[in-house]
Simulated assay, not measured.
Amino acid sequence: MPSPYVDELAARARTLAASGPRRVLGVAGPPGAGKSTLAEALVRALDGVAALVPMDGFHLADAELARLGRADRKGAPDTFDAYGYAALLARLRAPEHGETVYAPSFERAWEQPVAGALPVPPDVPLIVTEGNYLLLDEEPWSTAVRPLLDEVWWVAVDDGVRVERLVARHVAFGKSPSFARDWVLRSDEANARRVAPGRDRADLVVDLDAGRLVTPGRASRA
Protein backbone atom coordinates (compact mmCIF):
# COMPACT_ATOMS: atom_id res chain seq x y z
CA MET A 1 0.00 0.00 0.00
CA PRO A 2 1.62 3.30 -1.09
CA SER A 3 2.85 5.56 1.69
CA PRO A 4 0.77 8.61 0.62
CA TYR A 5 -2.33 6.41 0.87
CA VAL A 6 -1.57 5.40 4.43
CA ASP A 7 -0.56 8.96 5.28
CA GLU A 8 -3.98 10.27 4.24
CA LEU A 9 -5.75 7.64 6.29
CA ALA A 10 -3.46 8.27 9.25
CA ALA A 11 -4.26 11.98 9.11
CA ARG A 12 -7.97 11.20 9.29
CA ALA A 13 -7.37 8.80 12.17
CA ARG A 14 -5.31 11.41 14.05
CA THR A 15 -8.16 13.89 13.72
CA LEU A 16 -10.55 11.29 15.12
CA ALA A 17 -8.18 10.51 18.00
CA ALA A 18 -7.90 14.19 18.90
CA SER A 19 -11.65 14.78 19.16
CA GLY A 20 -12.35 14.03 22.83
CA PRO A 21 -12.04 10.88 24.95
CA ARG A 22 -10.58 7.63 23.62
CA ARG A 23 -12.04 6.73 20.22
CA VAL A 24 -12.49 3.40 18.47
CA LEU A 25 -11.98 3.07 14.71
CA GLY A 26 -13.24 -0.04 12.93
CA VAL A 27 -11.86 -1.53 9.72
CA ALA A 28 -14.36 -3.88 8.06
CA GLY A 29 -14.68 -5.80 4.83
CA PRO A 30 -15.02 -9.31 3.41
CA PRO A 31 -12.51 -12.10 4.13
CA GLY A 32 -9.21 -11.54 2.33
CA ALA A 33 -9.81 -7.87 1.53
CA GLY A 34 -6.70 -6.71 3.38
CA LYS A 35 -8.22 -5.45 6.63
CA SER A 36 -5.37 -6.71 8.80
CA THR A 37 -2.72 -5.31 6.47
CA LEU A 38 -4.37 -1.89 6.40
CA ALA A 39 -5.00 -1.81 10.16
CA GLU A 40 -1.40 -2.81 10.94
CA ALA A 41 0.02 -0.23 8.50
CA LEU A 42 -2.23 2.44 9.97
CA VAL A 43 -1.18 1.72 13.55
CA ARG A 44 2.49 1.79 12.52
CA ALA A 45 2.00 5.14 10.78
CA LEU A 46 0.27 6.56 13.86
CA ASP A 47 3.40 5.72 15.89
CA GLY A 48 2.07 5.37 19.42
CA VAL A 49 -1.25 7.16 18.93
CA ALA A 50 -3.18 3.90 18.33
CA ALA A 51 -3.34 0.29 19.51
CA LEU A 52 -4.60 -2.60 17.37
CA VAL A 53 -7.24 -4.96 18.81
CA PRO A 54 -8.56 -7.36 16.13
CA MET A 55 -11.99 -8.96 16.34
CA ASP A 56 -10.48 -12.37 15.57
CA GLY A 57 -9.41 -12.80 19.19
CA PHE A 58 -13.07 -13.56 19.88
CA HIS A 59 -13.24 -16.69 17.72
CA LEU A 60 -14.82 -19.50 19.70
CA ALA A 61 -12.36 -22.31 20.42
CA ASP A 62 -12.53 -25.38 18.21
CA ALA A 63 -13.81 -27.55 21.06
CA GLU A 64 -16.76 -25.22 21.60
CA LEU A 65 -17.48 -25.02 17.86
CA ALA A 66 -17.55 -28.82 17.76
CA ARG A 67 -19.91 -28.92 20.75
CA LEU A 68 -22.23 -26.43 19.01
CA GLY A 69 -22.05 -28.23 15.67
CA ARG A 70 -20.50 -25.21 13.93
CA ALA A 71 -16.95 -26.40 13.25
CA ASP A 72 -17.60 -26.84 9.53
CA ARG A 73 -18.33 -23.11 9.14
CA LYS A 74 -15.75 -21.59 11.42
CA GLY A 75 -15.55 -17.86 10.71
CA ALA A 76 -19.31 -17.30 10.35
CA PRO A 77 -20.88 -14.60 12.56
CA ASP A 78 -22.18 -17.04 15.16
CA THR A 79 -18.74 -18.64 15.62
CA PHE A 80 -17.54 -15.52 17.47
CA ASP A 81 -18.24 -14.29 20.99
CA ALA A 82 -19.82 -11.05 19.77
CA TYR A 83 -21.04 -9.99 23.21
CA GLY A 84 -17.60 -10.59 24.69
CA TYR A 85 -16.10 -8.47 21.91
CA ALA A 86 -18.61 -5.70 22.64
CA ALA A 87 -17.79 -5.85 26.35
CA LEU A 88 -14.10 -5.40 25.60
CA LEU A 89 -14.80 -2.47 23.27
CA ALA A 90 -16.86 -0.81 26.00
CA ARG A 91 -14.05 -1.32 28.50
CA LEU A 92 -11.51 0.06 26.03
CA ARG A 93 -13.63 3.15 25.42
CA ALA A 94 -13.71 4.00 29.12
CA PRO A 95 -10.78 2.35 30.94
CA GLU A 96 -10.25 2.89 34.63
CA HIS A 97 -7.60 5.49 35.43
CA GLY A 98 -4.16 4.00 34.84
CA GLU A 99 -5.51 0.63 33.74
CA THR A 100 -3.82 -1.44 31.06
CA VAL A 101 -6.48 -3.48 29.29
CA TYR A 102 -5.47 -6.90 27.95
CA ALA A 103 -7.17 -8.11 24.78
CA PRO A 104 -7.06 -11.53 23.11
CA SER A 105 -5.29 -12.19 19.83
CA PHE A 106 -5.75 -14.94 17.23
CA GLU A 107 -2.86 -17.25 16.41
CA ARG A 108 -3.22 -18.32 12.77
CA ALA A 109 -0.69 -21.13 13.08
CA TRP A 110 -2.98 -22.79 15.65
CA GLU A 111 -6.22 -21.22 14.39
CA GLN A 112 -7.08 -20.49 18.03
CA PRO A 113 -7.64 -17.36 20.16
CA VAL A 114 -4.99 -16.48 22.74
CA ALA A 115 -6.23 -14.71 25.87
CA GLY A 116 -4.50 -11.66 27.32
CA ALA A 117 -2.01 -11.33 24.45
CA LEU A 118 -2.46 -7.66 23.51
CA PRO A 119 -1.79 -4.99 26.16
CA VAL A 120 -3.49 -1.63 25.59
CA PRO A 121 -1.87 1.10 27.72
CA PRO A 122 -4.14 3.73 29.29
CA ASP A 123 -2.55 6.67 27.44
CA VAL A 124 -3.33 5.45 23.90
CA PRO A 125 -6.08 7.74 22.51
CA LEU A 126 -7.23 5.55 19.60
CA ILE A 127 -8.15 1.87 19.31
CA VAL A 128 -8.10 0.35 15.82
CA THR A 129 -10.12 -2.84 15.53
CA GLU A 130 -10.72 -4.88 12.40
CA GLY A 131 -13.00 -7.74 11.41
CA ASN A 132 -15.52 -9.03 8.92
CA TYR A 133 -18.67 -8.26 10.89
CA LEU A 134 -18.32 -4.71 12.20
CA LEU A 135 -20.98 -3.49 9.75
CA LEU A 136 -23.16 -6.60 9.66
CA ASP A 137 -26.80 -5.55 9.98
CA GLU A 138 -27.70 -8.43 12.28
CA GLU A 139 -27.89 -8.73 16.04
CA PRO A 140 -25.80 -8.59 18.11
CA TRP A 141 -23.32 -6.95 15.73
CA SER A 142 -25.60 -4.08 14.77
CA THR A 143 -26.88 -3.41 18.29
CA ALA A 144 -24.01 -4.35 20.62
CA VAL A 145 -20.88 -3.71 18.52
CA ARG A 146 -21.57 -0.96 15.96
CA PRO A 147 -22.62 1.71 18.53
CA LEU A 148 -19.21 1.37 20.19
CA LEU A 149 -17.32 2.30 16.98
CA ASP A 150 -16.85 6.00 16.23
CA GLU A 151 -16.09 5.34 12.56
CA VAL A 152 -15.95 2.20 10.43
CA TRP A 153 -13.95 2.02 7.20
CA TRP A 154 -14.62 -0.61 4.55
CA VAL A 155 -11.74 -2.19 2.61
CA ALA A 156 -12.69 -3.10 -0.97
CA VAL A 157 -10.63 -5.17 -3.41
CA ASP A 158 -11.31 -7.32 -6.48
CA ASP A 159 -13.07 -10.57 -5.53
CA GLY A 160 -10.69 -12.68 -7.57
CA VAL A 161 -7.72 -11.21 -5.72
CA ARG A 162 -9.45 -11.88 -2.39
CA VAL A 163 -10.11 -15.51 -3.20
CA GLU A 164 -6.54 -16.19 -4.27
CA ARG A 165 -5.21 -14.49 -1.13
CA LEU A 166 -7.45 -16.65 1.04
CA VAL A 167 -6.45 -19.87 -0.69
CA ALA A 168 -2.77 -18.98 -0.35
CA ARG A 169 -3.27 -18.16 3.34
CA HIS A 170 -4.88 -21.51 4.09
CA VAL A 171 -2.14 -23.36 2.18
CA ALA A 172 0.57 -21.41 4.03
CA PHE A 173 -0.89 -22.64 7.32
CA GLY A 174 -0.88 -26.30 6.34
CA LYS A 175 -4.04 -26.96 4.30
CA SER A 176 -3.85 -28.77 0.97
CA PRO A 177 -4.57 -26.59 -2.10
CA SER A 178 -7.77 -28.51 -2.88
CA PHE A 179 -9.06 -28.31 0.70
CA ALA A 180 -8.13 -24.61 0.87
CA ARG A 181 -9.99 -23.71 -2.32
CA ASP A 182 -13.05 -25.74 -1.33
CA TRP A 183 -13.15 -24.04 2.10
CA VAL A 184 -12.77 -20.57 0.60
CA LEU A 185 -15.47 -21.04 -2.03
CA ARG A 186 -17.88 -22.71 0.39
CA SER A 187 -17.30 -20.92 3.69
CA ASP A 188 -15.30 -17.71 3.25
CA GLU A 189 -17.26 -16.61 0.20
CA ALA A 190 -20.58 -17.28 1.95
CA ASN A 191 -19.39 -14.88 4.67
CA ALA A 192 -18.24 -12.38 2.04
CA ARG A 193 -21.71 -12.31 0.47
CA ARG A 194 -23.28 -11.92 3.89
CA VAL A 195 -21.24 -8.84 4.81
CA ALA A 196 -21.25 -7.19 1.36
CA PRO A 197 -24.16 -4.77 2.13
CA GLY A 198 -22.03 -3.30 4.92
CA ARG A 199 -20.07 -1.32 2.34
CA ASP A 200 -22.99 1.08 1.98
CA ARG A 201 -23.03 1.70 5.75
CA ALA A 202 -19.34 2.55 6.04
CA ASP A 203 -18.07 6.02 6.91
CA LEU A 204 -15.29 5.58 4.35
CA VAL A 205 -14.55 3.03 1.63
CA VAL A 206 -10.87 2.32 1.02
CA ASP A 207 -11.04 1.16 -2.61
CA LEU A 208 -7.72 -0.59 -3.21
CA ASP A 209 -8.48 -1.35 -6.88
CA ALA A 210 -9.34 2.22 -7.85
CA GLY A 211 -6.76 3.74 -5.52
CA ARG A 212 -9.16 6.15 -3.88
CA LEU A 213 -11.11 6.86 -0.73
CA VAL A 214 -14.87 7.01 -1.17
CA THR A 215 -17.46 8.48 1.17
CA PRO A 216 -21.24 8.42 0.59
CA GLY A 217 -22.05 10.66 -2.33
CA ARG A 218 -18.50 11.76 -3.13
CA ALA A 219 -14.98 10.50 -3.80
CA SER A 220 -11.51 11.84 -3.17
CA ARG A 221 -8.26 10.76 -4.73
CA ALA A 222 -5.95 8.90 -2.37
Results as ranks from 00 to 15, higher is better:
Leu9Ile: 07
Ala10Asn: 02
Ala10Lys: 09
Ala11Ile: 08
Arg12Asn: 01
Arg12Asp: 02
Arg14Ile: 06
Thr15Asp: 13
Gly20Pro: 10
Pro21Ser: 10
Pro21Val: 04
Pro21His: 05
Arg22Gly: 10
Arg23Thr: 13
Arg23Cys: 12
Arg23Tyr: 08
Val24Gln: 01
Leu25Tyr: 11
Gly26Met: 12
Val27Tyr: 06
Val27Gly: 07
Ala28Pro: 03
Gly29Arg: 08
Pro30Cys: 10
Pro30Trp: 01
Pro31Met: 12
Gly32Phe: 01
Gly34Thr: 12
Gly34Glu: 12
Ser36Val: 07
Glu40Lys: 13
Glu40Thr: 15
Ala41Glu: 15
Val43Glu: 06
Val43Ser: 01
Val43Phe: 13
Leu46Arg: 07
Leu46Pro: 09
Asp47Pro: 05
Gly48Asp: 12
Val49Ala: 07
Val49Tyr: 04
Ala50Lys: 04
Ala50Thr: 08
Leu52Trp: 14
Leu52Ser: 05
Val53Asn: 01
Val53His: 01
Val53Glu: 00
Pro54Thr: 02
Met55Lys: 02
Asp56Lys: 03
Gly57Cys: 10
Phe58His: 01
Leu60Ile: 05
Leu60Lys: 07
Ala61Arg: 15
Ala61Ser: 10
Ala61Glu: 13
Glu64Trp: 09
Glu64Ala: 11
Leu65Cys: 07
Leu65His: 09
Ala66Ile: 01
Ala66Val: 11
Arg67Gln: 11
Arg67Met: 05
Leu68Ala: 12
Gly69Ser: 06
Ala71Tyr: 02
Ala71Asp: 09
Asp72Thr: 15
Arg73Pro: 10
Lys74Glu: 08
Lys74Met: 07
Ala76Lys: 08
Ala76Leu: 08
Ala76Ile: 02
Pro77Ser: 08
Asp78Ser: 11
Asp78Met: 03
Thr79Cys: 10
Phe80Val: 03
Phe80Met: 04
Ala82His: 01
Ala82Lys: 00
Ala87Asn: 05
Ala87Ile: 01
Ala87Pro: 00
Arg91Ile: 04
Arg91Asn: 04
Leu92Trp: 00
Arg93Tyr: 00
Ala94Ile: 00
Ala94Leu: 09
Glu96Ala: 14
His97Ser: 15
Gly98Cys: 13
Gly98Thr: 11
Gly98Ile: 14
Glu99Ser: 12
Thr100Met: 09
Val101His: 05
Val101Trp: 07
Val101Ser: 11
Tyr102Glu: 11
Tyr102Gly: 09
Ala103Lys: 00
Ala103Phe: 00
Pro104Val: 05
Ser105Tyr: 10
Glu107Thr: 02
Trp110His: 14
Trp110Glu: 14
Trp110Leu: 13
Gln112Ile: 00
Pro113Ser: 06
Pro113Asn: 10
Val114Leu: 14
Val114Asn: 07
Ala115Gly: 04
Ala115Trp: 09
Gly116Trp: 14
Ala117His: 04
Leu118Thr: 05
Leu118Phe: 03
Leu118Tyr: 06
